[in-house]
Design a protein around this nucleic acid. Structure first.
Lengths: 144, 144
DNA sequence: CCGTATCCCCGAGGATACTG
DNA sequence: CAGTATCCTCGGGGATACGG
């Protein structure tokens, strides 16, 4: 199974090569708990370590470090040390990191546009399991 | 911190409302281990349970069921039972499920286009920790 | 054929303490 | 200030067995 085999509306360009593994990797990155919050903050410009820590509610020092390393390893952000006292480290999106914002924003916008519909779907699914049945040729079949 | 506060290239529409929680939810969905593979298969049309199981390498019966329930709960797919013997169940993308394909494909395409650059970034990061230094006013500082 | 039910393992990630 | 190091918890997800 390959994600690059997705085909649909015809107006949708198929990925040229086997972007399957690559897609898995980038989804593991932006799908993780913190990366997107960091990217979102850095979208406004360079930020220092503790700036990010204060700006991202609930993140631990450990996870901030680890996530920043991951993003740096992927080439999405740069890390710049200023050997002052006290030390100062700036993180900044790379050009590639900035290009990622566009597809990410498409997803954010989709989520925003569909959140009501999704919430309603949840309600239907959770509140009415008795509605979980099919009517075939006049006969009701309940889902087990 | 809110994902909906991402601002950038100016040509990028900001999400109208607080799509932050919604984004978290949809990322948890498509970022999970199997949802995207299922969606990719269903993009080609309705599929039966064991069709999906055979088509998605490595998925367990348990995870296929759980992931399908999650997608159904989100209103992204429908489940249709045919009470024949043996039983038959079809899964199919909803209209909303199909609209999700567009932003997802944008991400897949981004991953495809940038996979080489990312692999190179990994190489640089992994092979040359000694390159992990800054040059400031002619002086080299090694990252500790 | 299409699932549930159980058991179990492993790793993501939190809490806390320490360091240059 | 900007990190490591260590310990520990919790739940995602695999393997297996059973059921309508």
């Amino acid at each position: 199974m390959s994600l690059s085999h997705i085909e649909l509306p015809a107006d949708m360009p198929a990925p040229d090569t086997g972007g399957c593994v690559a897609t898995r990797e980038i989804l593991d990155r932006i799908g993780d708990k913190w990366s997107l919050y960091i990217v979102a903050m850095l979208a406004k410009g360079p930020r220092r370590f503790n700036e990010l820590k204060r700006g991202i509610d609930g993140i631990s020092q450990r996870m901030l470090t680890l996530t920043l390393r991951g993003l740096e390893r992927d080439g999405l952000i740069t890390r710049t040390m200023y050997p002052t006292i006290p030390p100062r480290v700036d993180y900044e999106l790379t050009d590639m990191g900035r290009t990622l914002l566009k597809p990410v924003m498409a997803l954010v916008n989709w989520a925003s546009e569909n959140q009501v519909a999704i919430a309603e779907a949840h309600k239907r699914f959770d509140e009415k399991p008795e509605a979980d049945q099919v009517l075939i040729q006049g006969v009701v079949y309940q889902r087990r």
